[in-house]
């Protein structure tokens, strides 16, 4: 009897292993959905609790009227939206599907791939700021190495004087290798100066400057106008 139960358990485990293996290799989007559901920014339980609590207390008639008005607005906007390009011809808008789950890299998976014309090395921007570059491309998705990745190094220029520096990625990116005496100040814009990227893509602003540990160069800490953990959509430049 006990032996039979153990055998049944093994059959169940075996079936689950097979199902999970199939999902991992052929339908990973189910995993991203579970992950989205478990993440604070996802649509999991509690995500809309404030809204639903408020809705349950609201007057039904008011809600119905608002609903009608919103439906009318939606219909109007849908007509307009049909006539508008979702993005310009030189860029692809993509949703962020998931993020690298550990602290060894800073990478995003975005929902546009080779089928949409995404290529390795393409710049990825968020709100007009350079966020990173495409690292790997799949048919319908691509991974982005962000400037918050430890292994990223990128030549940049700073401010109106165009002072050269080297962006060193990481949780707190810094610009190093800045010539001592170069006129840089807090608030100066830092922009990309990399082959194969559009020249002058803004990256961040200088937060503060200091002298490097070996006293040979200046270095600058940076301010970013966004939180990389909260990014939901990006633009991939062609």
């Amino acid at each position: 009897m006990g032996h039979e139960r153990i055998s049944n358990n093994h059959w169940i485990s075996g079936a689950l292993i097979a199902i999970l293996a199939l999902l991992i290799f052929f339908a990973p989007s189910y995993g991203w959905a579970i992950r989205s559901w478990l993440s604070p920014s996802g649509n999991g339980p509690g995500g809309n609790s404030g809204v639903s609590a408020a809705a349950s207390q609201a007057d039904d008639q008011t809600l119905a009227a608002e609903n009608d008005a919103l439906q009318a607005q939606l219909a109007t906007l849908q007509v307009v939206a049909l006539e508008m390009p979702t993005s310009s011809s030189g860029e692809i808008r993509a949703m962020v599907y998931s993020r690298y789950p550990m602290n060894f890299r800073n990478e995003l998976l975005v929902g546009a791939g080779s089928n949409s014309g995404v290529t390795v090395g393409a710049p990825v921007v968020f709100q007009g700021m350079l966020l990173g570059r495409i690292k790997a491309v799949f048919p319908d998705s691509a991974t982005v190495q962000t400037i918050f990745d430890d292994s990223l190094k990128m030549p940049v220029r700073i401010g109106a004087s165009g002072t050269d520096g080297l962006l060193d990625g990481g949780s707190y990116p810094i610009v190093g290798s800045i010539t001592v005496g170069a006129a840089i100040a807090s608030g100066n814009i830092v922009y990309a100066a990399v082959p194969n990227l559009p020249y002058g893509l803004p990256i961040a602003t200088v937060a503060a400057t200091s002298t490097s540990a070996d006293s040979l160069f200046q270095q600058a800490t940076l301010n970013f106008p966004y939180d990389v953990n909260n990014i939901e959509t990006v633009l991939i430049l062609k």
Binding site: P28, I34, R35, R99, E107
Partner: peptide, 12 residues
């Protein structure tokens, strides 16, 4: 495998 399914951030 369940953990891998959830944390794997890319198709490959």
């Amino acid at each position: 495998l369940f953990a891998v399914l959830v944390i794997n951030w890319q198709p490959a």
